[in-house]
Design a protein around this nucleic acid. Structure first.
Lengths: 198, 198
DNA sequence: CTGTTTATCTTGACGATGTCAACATATTTT
DNA sequence: AAAATATGTTGACATCGTCAAGATAAACAG
């Protein structure tokens, strides 16, 4: 109902508009180049307008990271649920695939979620989401190797997924590798490593 | 022989001093906070002095990344050589350990080497070092699984190491995990995954 | 040894940034 | 309707990277 207003002094939905503008900017330019002023510019407001909605640029980014975490956890949960009739190993593989698909499809959010740009400690919501994601994974791993080895096992899985995601996002993977095939192959080997004894 | 000079107009070793100041700054403050002016300040010169030695801040960082790569490749090579009488798997594990030790002991260099802060494409030397590191790893993996599977295998190892290194450096590992034990456990599982069939 | 050229460093400037304070305008509450 | 509050705008400040112009020392030519 507010799409055709010329230029109302009050935007009305500025908070949401800023988040949208930020996400749009984040797909078009590198993270470091996204400034508060740039976001304000894209939203069509003055450079200081965001102050009333986000105390700082980090705060805005933290909000994007938080919503990213929500979708992330949901994606992993969904992937596992869709395989609930399969073996624990199949469920874990589905989660790993979902992990990498999320990273590829939400590059900016992923970078904010796992980068140092937003300081996790500042937002209890963020740390909670982070821990939730971890224990989600740990549960899936425990179904395969038992609770005893779940800690180190989930670290293995997480490291692999995170590392691969980072290599992809920062385009540092060897160019001759097909991501799809690589994902299948690597997830298979990771699970084999999990299931090995010792 | 030049440590006690008062304030010679010409520094004499400014290029080296700037690199040293940058590395010092990088261990004391987050990467994004390290500015050219801060580096100049630490070196005791004016804010524009670095211009004559490094065209840009990125250029200075690129140099640090390049020297980091040299030490990195040497560390991996050395670790493998020291195990030359052991099995290929033992050699690869030694390399993985060396990888993570390097990351932990050269946080700033590692971040610059594998982050987006310095654009690899700009320096042929950097890309060469990067490729060298990869093929170094690929060779070690090929000794275990054959050349056929070496590509995907080395991606597995690299992803795990890189991911774990990143989690450590950005302090996003679950707090209750002992890094040393984790490294041993994860490298063992990774190699088991490599050796699994299919 | 003297004069000139060259490399290095300083100073001052520009536009851009994040953030704050002061002011303007709209919405909500009283 | 008036007052209080929320949400914009404008202007300022310090800091940043970078450039251009001047200052100073070193290297070099004769």
């Amino acid at each position: 109902m507010a799409e055709d207003d010329k230029k109302p002094y009050h935007h009305g939905e500025l908070r949401a508009a800023l988040l949208a503008a930020a996400e749009a900017a984040l797909v078009e330019m590198p993270l470091e180049a996204v400034s508060l002023r740039e976001i304000a510019r894209r939203a069509g407001v003055s450079h200081a307008a965001p102050k009333h909605h986000f105390s700082t640029l980090g705060g805005l980014f933290a909000e994007i990271a938080a919503s990213g975490f929500e979708r992330f956890v949901a994606a992993l949960d969904g992937a596992a649920d869709r395989q609930s009739d399969q073996s624990p190993a199949a469920r874990l593989r589905a989660m790993a695939r979902a992990y990498l698909r999320f990273a590829a499809g939400n590059r900016a959010a992923y970078a904010l979620m796992f980068g140092k740009r937003v300081e996790m400690e500042r937002s209890p919501q963020l740390t909670a989401a982070h821990i939730a994601a971890w224990s989600q994974l740990e549960t899936a791993v425990a179904a395969i190797v038992g609770r005893e080895r779940a800690v180190n096992g989930s670290l293995l899985v997480w490291s692999c997924c995170h590392g691969m995601a980072m290599l992809m996002l920062e385009s540092q993977m060897p160019p001759h590798i097909d991501p799809q095939i690589a994902i299948e192959s690597v997830t298979r080997m990771v699970i084999a490593g999990l299931q090995s004894d010792t």
